[in-house]
């Protein structure tokens, strides 16, 4: 319980804040507020629809389908599964998405009685992951097989963590490596080492500059927003599925704005773009 409280405070304390000597305005970011309220309204509309049983269609994500297959293969070979939640702390939304996916992976691994190894770069991520895995074992009806030693802290330093993880891959030869979350310069070092050890590799990140490396060296890759959609896809929960639909609707609206803007800019009518520049410039 305390661990959860700690984690939640840390996540929330990372939110941007208004600070300063200047007297702040009554309403600081009006356009952002309107947009946010609109998004929440759309979200709740689709949540209600989904709750009534009208589940939206979500296209198959091969990377997520492959997770079960990868754990199955590890079980057959009697080797562990390696799971990394990225190099972000819990203030990073990608890490939270990775922990959501971990919940599913850990449950499957517990059902198959396959060890799940998770070195962690941050201590808060470590304790959160321990909770997630413990709960997953409970849900799988195998609380006795939960081993907290398999989820451990390594180092806050990027390449010290990478050196350790590569060592784990070389020594323990996991049959499946799952990389979810935020990755930076180390993505190819991890993925190529994993490839050389012959593991099935599944990656997912929203760091666009690292996607090419994962695509080249991994068997499956969740690209950008697919990482965020994963928890909805895996859970098949009505509310979560509804949120994906809402997200698509918002995307279509924004796409409409972009299209109109492109046309108006092309015919040299800059007022529309100027308006957005003004609005967004003021936050």
């Amino acid at each position: 319980m305390i661990k959860r409280g700690v984690f939640l405070f840390l996540f929330l304390s990372a939110s941007p804040v208004f600070a300063g000597d200047e007297k702040p305005p009554m309403l600081a970011h009006p356009y952002v507020l309107v947009t946010m309220l609109l998004m929440i309204a759309i979200l709740y509309t689709y949540l209600l629809t989904a709750k009534k049983g009208k589940l939206p269609f979500i296209r198959t994500l091969p990377g997520l389908k492959a997770i079960d297959e990868a754990i199955g293969r590890a079980t057959e070979l009697g080797k562990p599964v390696l799971y990394l939640s990225g190099l972000g702390d819990v203030d990073n939304i990608q890490t939270l998405a990775a922990l959501s996916i971990l919940s599913h992976v850990a449950k499957k691994a517990a059902e198959y009685d396959t060890p799940l190894i998770m070195p962690s770069m941050y201590s808060v991520t470590m304790v959160t992951a321990q909770e997630v895995i413990k709960e997953a074992h409970l849900r799988a009806g195998r609380p006795d097989t939960y081993n907290p030693d398999n989820v451990y802290y390594v180092s806050d330093e990027q390449f010290a963590f990478v050196a350790h993880t590569n060592g784990v891959m070389e020594r323990m030869r996991p049959a499946a490596n799952i990389y979810m979350g935020a990755y930076f310069g180390e993505s190819l070092i991890l993925a190529e080492t994993g490839h050389a050890t012959g593991a099935i590799q599944i990656a997912g990140t929203a760091e666009t500059s690292q996607l090419p490396f994962f695509v080249v060296a991994c068997d499956y890759c969740l690209i950008g927003e697919e990482l965020y959609a994963a928890s909805a896809y895996l859970s098949q929960d009505a509310k979560q599925m509804g949120s994906i639909k809402a997200q698509d609707v918002v995307r279509l609206i924004v796409l409409g704005f972009i299209l109109v803007g492109s046309i108006l800019e092309t015919v040299n009518l800059p007022h529309y773009a100027d308006f957005f520049q003004k609005v967004l410039g003021g936050g």
Partner: peptide
């Protein structure tokens, strides 16, 4: 990515997605 991030944040704040701290989401 930005849309995914915004909606994930809203889901966390409103408690729709709780799987990141152990189950809940499933």
């Amino acid at each position: 990515v930005a849309f995914g991030m915004v909606f994930m944040s809203i889901k966390i704040l409103t408690g729709i997605d709780r799987s990141y701290f152990g189950g809940g989401g499933e």
